[in-house]
């Protein structure tokens, strides 16, 4: 048979293979994972940006569509990074096929990193395509592209970690959907996607400051337009701190095997 047990081992190959699996998973169902959010964002662009936006001006020197595009890009990044890790890991758990991974020599850190990078890739891909489509309707000044990239990077990383945590904590599809419907979506809409929080009554402004997406939304918009409600470095520091905290929590849960190992 010319077969002998194997002694070869490439330590990073398990990570690379899991990353490849995760990317292949979402690209194999691209209609659902990439095209749908892009179509949704395009509708937002058309309805809020082009149609209604022509009658609104909420930030001096910028059209409403210029105001709303950074929000739409960030919404695409947030929802898709979250959806990728949460649905992929939850399906693994729900179908019981997670045991396929648990018996392999993939450490907790690399396990988490593979899921995270694939989710970031999906989130950023959707964000970039939304930006490209928005170019049909408006131009953005991109005041600080490096900062823009850092906000996109941190936001996609943070919500990929949230997705891992939600997938581990959820035992049913309903429970998982609750995270999207009752946490992610309200945080996005109340985080200043369609308006600057300076337009809100002062009580709501205070409440908005407890919304983590507000800092990312405001920071990213400021990096694109050059105008924002709070100092951009503070937003960046808060985004980085949240991303670090979420990463520690998600990695700890995976390392402990919480709801993964018996």
């Amino acid at each position: 048979m010319n077969y002998k047990p194997n002694d070869i081992f490439f330590p990073w190959l398990p990570f690379y293979s899991l990353l490849k699996r995760e990317v292949l998973r979402f690209t194999s169902i691209a209609t659902q994972t990439v095209i749908t959010p892009i179509v949704t964002a395009s509708l937002y662009l058309f309805v809020f940006g082009v149609h209604l936006g022509g009658q609104l001006s909420i930030l001096e020197g910028f059209s409403y569509i210029q105001f709303v595009v950074p929000g739409l890009i960030l919404m695409g990044v947030v929802t898709n990074a979250f959806a990728n890790t949460s649905s992929s890991l939850f399906f693994y758990r729900y179908l019981g096929s997670v045991v396929e991974l648990l018996v392999t020599p993939i450490g907790a850190f690399r396990f988490s990193l593979a899921f995270t990078l694939a989710a970031m890739l999906r989130g950023i891909t959707v964000g970039v395509v939304i930006w490209l489509i928005s170019m049909l309707f408006t131009d953005l000044p991109w005041a600080n592209p490096v900062m823009s990239f850092m906000f996109i990077f941190l936001t996609s990383f943070l919500f990929a970690q949230f997705g891992l945590i939600a997938a581990i904590l959820s035992n049913t599809f309903d429970a998982l959907a609750m995270y999207t419907n009752f946490l992610i979506v309200p945080l996005i809409y109340l985080g200043g996607m369609f308006y600057p929080i300076s337009m809100l009554p002062s009580a709501w402004q205070t409440i908005s400051r407890f919304n983590p997406i507000f800092y990312m939304m405001d920071g990213f918009r400021q990096s694109v337009l050059g105008e924002g409600d709070i100092p951009i470095r503070l937003s960046l520091a808060i985004a980085a701190a949240l991303a670090l905290a979420a990463w520690v929590i998600a990695s700890y849960m995976i390392w402990k095997g919480k709801r993964l190992r018996l």
Partner: peptide, 17 residues
């Protein structure tokens, strides 16, 4: 999500082989 051919290729990689 995968065919047998794809899944076997991935699984070999999961083991670092």
């Amino acid at each position: 999500f995968f065919s047998i051919a794809q899944a076997l290729r991935l699984h070999s990689g999961y083991y670092g082989v």
